[in-house]
Amino acid sequence: MKIDHASTRGLGPFVSQTGMILLAALWLFPFLWMLSTALKPNAEVFQFPPRLFGSSVEWSNFPAAWNFVPFGRFMFNGLLVSVIGTLLVLFTSILSAYAFARLHFWRREQLFLIYLGTLMIPQEVTVVPLFLLMKSIGWVNTYQALILPLAFTAFGTFLLRQFFLSIPRDFEEAARIDGATRWQILWNVIVPMAKPAIAVLALFTFIGYWNNFLWPLIVGNTREMATVPVGLNLFNGQHGTEWNYMMAASTISILPTAILTVTLQKYIIEGISISGFGGR
């Protein structure tokens, strides 16, 4: 580990900066190669020695990949599932976070800690019975099966509760004196003040839904119901040899989350600090 060498004088900072640039380039390389392969003629994908650019730049690979499988449908499914799932998570988390932050009830703190502890339950323990449940109520290959089972976790409650606790009570007291009900106070006073935390939760939840693979693979593995990662996998199964199309499809599939990550990186970093997940 080359730590703190940059603080020494002389060549140190230069070496450190250059090393960092090289490492970052290495980290970006897989994405670069994805794009490079997506733009090559199919015959040149496995050319040896490998070249970054093919003999021609085949932009047409993108529309071709889009139409090889119903990729528009996958994007629509992914968007629908992610947006509705995110709204649901926001709504239920705001309510329960408020309860754990401001209401008083029996064993509130203990209940909260137990609820928080359920974050540690690994997916593989519940996935088989959950699938059996979906099957028994006829939900396999439906949107509700893609959305609902992932919409109720302790994470959102935890994240928002931490933030609600940091809001001074004076604002609520003032609203209460003006005759506002609890419901109005929550939605008109607390929620607007908690916007940064809610934005963070929305971002994390959206990306989580968009990228999830195991659950949609189990309950939505058809051309009609596939979300983007599952669709990419269908592509993989059907056209395993057309790597240029597959990389074009992969490039399309990472764009939405990559754009969100780049434009909203401030919120991601903030979210990690708010949730206390970053220590103190």
Binding site: M20, A24, W27, L28, P30, F31, W33, M34, T37, V45, I207, W210, N211, F213, V228, P229, L232, N233, N236, W243, M246, M247, S250, T251, S253, I254, T257, A258, L260, T261, V262, Q265, I268, I269
Partner: peptide, 24 residues
């Protein structure tokens, strides 16, 4: 910028990430 580069793969779909690694 470096921090962004290092955490970008965390937020892109893992299936796409793994596919390009299979190629590499």
């Amino acid at each position: 910028i470096f921090r962004l580069i290092f955490f970008l793969p965390v937020f892109t779909p893992m299936v796409a990430n793994a596919l390009v690694w299979r190629l590499l």
